[in-house]
Nucleic acid binder design. Structure first.
Length: 588
RNA sequence: CGCGGGGUAGAGCAGCUUGGUAGCUCGUCAGGCUCAUAACCUGAAGGUCAUUGGUUCGAAUCCAGUCCCCGCACCCA
C-alpha cells in the first residue's frame, strides 16, 4: 500500500466559465476519489488550478477590454468559487501564471537544455502587421493545398483533416483581424527533441499496467506517429519568458555581444514558452504554492520527489483530448529533465459529455455551464447525476429529461423518501428519542450481511475508480432501506409491540448513517444533512471508511435526533421542458 | 482505405480481457402496502446481443469482411 495518494485534475483553461463536461471530465471524479481515500485515513493531496497562458487568453481579455493579468485574476477567482460551490475540495487551486510556475518551468527547460534535449531551429512564422503580433498556426486561415477548402487553419485542414504547416496555405489571412497584410518572418524557436526520448518513452509506456485500453491506445498512437521535435516556444507577451540571457551565456556568447535583430528577430523580448510546455508543470508548481501556503516550503517534495517511487500513488484525471500530453509529452519532459519528478501511475481518461445529443457550445450558448447549473439546482443533484452517468467508457449524453428522471427517482424517491418515512415513523412512535439499544440478540444479521456486502462493493469500485458502477451500487444500497422497511412493516408491529417496532426503526436510523457515510464522496452536502438529522458528529463522515462502515451500536439509549424535511425537490415535466428550451441554444 | 469512439429489450447502459443457459436502471403492465416527497415493496411481459462468414462441442464474447451512428467546424474537455 502506498502511503500517499497524489491526485491532479486537468487544469481548466482560463478563458471562460466551464461547462458540465469539464466538471465530470476531471475535477468531480477526482474529488470523489479523494474524499473516498480520505475517509480511509489515507494521506491525500489533490491539486488543480487555472491554465492561464496562450493566445486564446489574450484574445478573451482583449474582448473583455481588460489587461490580461487582470482578466486572469478575475477569471481565476470566479472559477475557484464555482468549484468550491460544487463541493470540490482541492488542497490548493493554483495558477500557471504564478511565480513558482515561472521558476519551475524555467528550471525544467534549463535541465532539458543541459541534457541535450533542446534543439534550436529557425522557423518561418506569419506576422500580422495589423494585429501587431505573430500568429499562432491556428489563427491563420487560408485555402488548403490538398482539398482547396477555403477555411483551412494553419495547423490542420478541417475540410480533409490533413495536418498542415501554415506556410502551405494558399492565400493566407489572419483569423483574428481577417487581414491579408501578413508576412512570413524567420524567428528562432526551441524544440523538445522527442526522437531522442522515444526509446525511453516507449519503455515507460510499455511498463504501465494500470492504464485503460483507451489511454494506452492513445499513448501508443502518439509514439507511433507523433515522435518528432515539438516546438516549445511562441512569440507572445503573455507567458513564461524564455531565459535567453542564460542560453547565450551557456554558449559562451554573452547576449550583449549579439545583434538584437539576429537573436530575437521580430519577437523582441516576447518569447515565451508554448502553453502546453508550461501548463502541466503547474501540477508541481501549484503543489509548491500549496506548500508555501502551509508554511512548509519543502513539503511539495514529499509528493513529487518521494524517497521511493512507490511511496506515492499518483492518479491524473482528464478528458480524452489531454491524454497524449499526459502520457507522452509531459512525462518526456520530466524524464529528459532528470529532475526525478514522480510520474503518473494511473490516468483516468474520460470521454465527452454531449448535450442533448449535440455538442456543448459556448458561442451558441448551448448546454449548461457550471455557474448557471448551481443557480438551478444544488450541487449534489449535479454531482450524483454526472457521476452516475459519467462518460467513462464512451461518450454520454446530458439532457434535462434524463437529469430529472435520475434526480426524481434515485435521490428523491429512493433516498430522500426513505429518510422522511423513517424519521416520520420515529417521531410518531418514539418521539425522536432512541429508546433501545441494539445488541447481538436483536440485530438483523441478514440485513447486516447485505449492507456490508454492498458497502464493501462500493469501496472496491471507488478504489478502482469505476464511478458509474460505484454509483449504481450506492443506489442499490439505498434500495435496501426501502426493501427492509417494507418487509418489516414497523407501522404494523408498533401497534402491538413498542419494543419490536423500535428495534426495526433503530435499524433504519443506522442504515441512514451508512447511507450518509457511503454517499459522502458522491453527495457530501446531503450526507451532512443526514448526519444533522441523526444528530451525529459530521467529522465522522470524513473519517469513517465505507467498507464495513456499518455498526448497529452508534446511538445510545436516550440519543435525540432531529426532525426530517424534504431533502430533494422533484423536477416536474413542465420545468424539464422549459429548461430544455432555455439551454438549447436555438433562437433564444 | 484519414483518426478515434460506438452499434446488446421502448430508452440509457453492463457483460467482451480469461468463450459455456443474456444482466442492471428507467419506462410499461399486474399485485401488495399505507409509515413516507401519489412515494415504497413484490412479480411479469419485452432482446435470434448491427450484419455476413470463419474458429470451436459451444461465440454477445475470439478472427476476417460488410453496413450504420457520433466527434474530429467558432467556442470547448
Amino acid at each position: 500500500m502506498p502511503s500517499r495518494y497524489l491526485i491532479t485534475s486537468a487544469l481548466p483553461y482560463i478563458n471562460g466559465v466551464k461547462h458540465l463536461g469539464n466538471l465530470i471530465g476531471s475535477v468531480l471524479p477526482a474529488d470523489t476519489y479523494a474524499r473516498f481515500l480520505r475517509q480511509n485515513g489515507c494521506d491525500v493531496l489533490h491539486v488543480c488550478g487555472t491554465d492561464e497562458h496562450g493566445t486564446p487568453a489574450e484574445i478573451a481579455a482583449q474582448e473583455e477590454g481588460l489587461a490580461i493579468d487582470v482578466y486572469c485574476q478575475q477569471m481565476h477567482e470566479r472559477q475557484k468559487l464555482i468549484y468550491e460551490n460544487f463541493g470540490i475540495e482541492f488542497d490548493f487551486f493554483g495558477r500557471t501564471s504564478s511565480p513558482s510556475n515561472h521558476a519551475f518551468t524555467t528550471e525544467v527547460f534549463k535541465k532539458l537544455y543541459e541534457n541535450g534535449y533542446i534543439q534550436e531551429l529557425y522557423i518561418d512564422q506569419y506576422y500580422s502587421f495589423d494585429d501587431q503580433r505573430f500568429l499562432p498556426d491556428r489563427y491563420i486561415e487560408g485555402t488548403c493545398p490538398y482539398c482547396k477548402y477555403d477555411r483551412a487553419r494553419g495547423d490542420q485542414c478541417d475540410g480533409c483533416g490533413v495536418l498542415l504547416n501554415p506556410e502551405e496555405l494558399i492565400d493566407p489571412y489572419s483569423a483574428i483581424s481577417k487581414s491579408r497584410n501578413i508576412a512570413l518572418k524567420k524567428t528562432r524557436h526551441f524544440f523538445l527533441d522527442m526522437p531522442k526520448l522515444e526509446a525511453e518513452m516507449t519503455l515507460w509506456v510499455e511498463k504501465q499496467a494500470l492504464w485503460s485500453d483507451t489511454v494506452r491506445g492513445i499513448a501508443k498512437k502518439w509514439l507511433k506517429d507523433g515522435v518528432r521535435p515539438r516546438c516549445i516556444t511562441r512569440d507572445l507577451k503573455w507567458g513564461i519568458t524564455v531565459p535567453l540571457n542564460w542560453i547565450f551565456a551557456q554558449k559562451g556568447q554573452p547576449i550583449e555581444t549579439v545583434e538584437l535583430d539576429e537573436v530575437y528577430n521580430w519577437a523582441g523580448e516576447d518569447k515565451v514558452f508554448y502553453v502546453w510546455f508550461d501548463a502541466p508543470n503547474g501540477y508541481v508548481s501549484i503543489t509548491q504554492d500549496w506548500a508555501l501556503s502551509i508554511n512548509s516550503p519543502d513539503e511539495w517534495k514529499k509528493w513529487w520527489q518521494p524517497e521511493k517511487e512507490q511511496d506515492v500513488f499518483y492518479v491524473e484525471f482528464m478528458a480524452k483530448d489531454n491524454i497524449a500530453f499526459h502520457t507522452i509529452f509531459w512525462p518526456a519532459m520530466m524524464i529528459g529533465s532528470g529532475m526525478n519528478i514522480k510520474k503518473v501511475d494511473d490516468i483516468k481518461g474520460f470521454h465527452w459529455l454531449t448535450y442533448d445529443h449535440g455538442k456543448f457550445s459556448t458561442s451558441q450558448k448551448r448546454g449548461v455551464f457550471t455557474d448557471v447549473a448551481l443557480e438551478l439546482y444544488p450541487a449534489d443533484y449535479w454531482r450524483y447525476y454526472l457521476l452516475a452517468n459519467c462518460p467513462e467508457s464512451s461518450d454520454s449524453d446530458f439532457s434535462f429529461e434524463a437529469f430529472a428522471a435520475v434526480v426524481n427517482k434515485d435521490l428523491a424517491d429512493i433516498l430522500g423518501n426513505f429518510v422522511t418515512r423513517t424519521i416520520a415513523l420515529h417521531k410518531k412512535y418514539c418521539d425522536l428519542t432512541i429508546g433501545i439499544e441494539l445488541t447481538a440478540d436483536n440485530i438483523d444479521v441478514q440485513l447486516s450481511d447485505r449492507v456490508n456486502s454492498a458497502t464493501n462493493c462500493i469501496a472496491q469500485l471507488l478504489s478502482e475508480r469505476k464511478f458509474r458502477a460505484a454509483s449504481a451500487e450506492l443506489r442499490a444500497l439505498w434500495a435496501l432501506g426501502n426493501e427492509y422497511i417494507a418487509q418489516k412493516e414497523p407501522w404494523q408491529v408498533l401497534k402491538t409491540s413498542q419494543e419490536q417496532g423500535e428495534v426495526i426503526l433503530t435499524h433504519c436510523l443506522h442504515l441512514l448513517r451508512v447511507f450518509a457515510i457511503a454517499g459522502f464522496p458522491f453527495i457530501p452536502y446531503t450526507s451532512c444533512k443526514i448526519f444533522e438529522i441523526l444528530n451525529d458528529d459530521s467529522k465522522k463522515l470524513r473519517a469513517t471508511s465505507i467498507a464495513n462502515c456499518l455498526s448497529f451500536t452508534c446511538f445510545n439509549k436516550g440519543h435525540k435526533i432531529n426532525d426530517a424535511y424534504c431533502l430533494f425537490e422533484k423536477i416536474d415535466d413542465d420545468t424539464v421542458q422549459k429548461l430544455t428550451q432555455r439551454f438549447s441554444g436555438e433562437g433564444a
